[in-house]
Amino acid sequence: MQPIPHPAIAAGAHPFPHSHLLGIAGLQPWEMLFLLDEAEQWVDLNRSAAKHDNRLAGLTQINAFFENSTRTLLSFEIAGKRLGADVVNLGVSGSSVKKGETLLDTALTLNAMHPDLIVIRHGSSGAVQLIAEKLDCPVLNAGDGRHEHPTQALLDALTIRRRKGRIAGLTVAICGDILHSRVARSNFQLLGALGAKLRVVAPPTLLPAGVEQLGVEAFTDMDAGLKGADVVMMLRLQTERMDGAYVPSTREYFRFYGLTEARLRHAADDVLVMHPGPMNRGVEIDGRIADDIVRSAVTEQVEMGVAVRMACLDVLTRTRRGVAGWPK
């Protein structure tokens, strides 16, 4: 099915006039939809036998991860390789950062190697933007501190759209450690812009101040927060935050904020359960729900992640590949 162009694009707006993807903030709704539409073709390709496209052949993609990651790094690496790019990974342990080199010196060093695209993850909010200012190539934010994780939000939106057929009008409850979550922040922007009704559910210690001003309704009672929800998105709770720091214990957290069968009955009958992974079974989610292929979209999210990242890598390199219609 060929998607109908957004009215803004039909009226002449460029579908993606940005050199970087640093966050969802700053994107227009049609630009978000454009990335989702672009990702669809890669879902199909990834399910085929060949699974390869050569459009990024000859381009160098550096995945610079200043914070540990297995899943996201793997997803970006596969996405780049499926498009034919030469993919190099720079991990924290293999970097000069540990030897005292400043972040900006690292950025200048990477830049001097003439990469065509850099994917960056960093533990500090705003760090990816800071590095991007020093680089001559497109930068893709793979997560900065508690700030943004745009490709995670895009893959969540794609998953929801494919399962539900739409995003506008759906009630989405994001549950768990909202305070420290960049996934939640990117999703507020993305799902909010695309017309979803957003809720957050968390103990008061894990709800950031002023969250209502970001366009979400906040609940501390999980049953109330799940009532009638079409999508329930569980967030991972870091173990170091559970031993009395923000919540008293794992078992108390699961008792009041874990996603169980009984609790899920408050949501809509056809509720979709999501989790950005890795899951803590028995802490934030009952394992049986995670494994329920009808309601759980957890593995599908991983699949959509590769497709969304392929779309982003493709779109961000179009200018340098000289694709017609893309700004010089």
């Binding site: 508690r146 700030h147 101040a209 002023g210 969250v211 970001l214």
Partner: peptide
Amino acid sequence: TEGDYATRFGLAAAP
């Protein structure tokens, strides 16, 4: 300072 601004930018904040 704690508030919607710090929340939006993902900055650790105090009241």
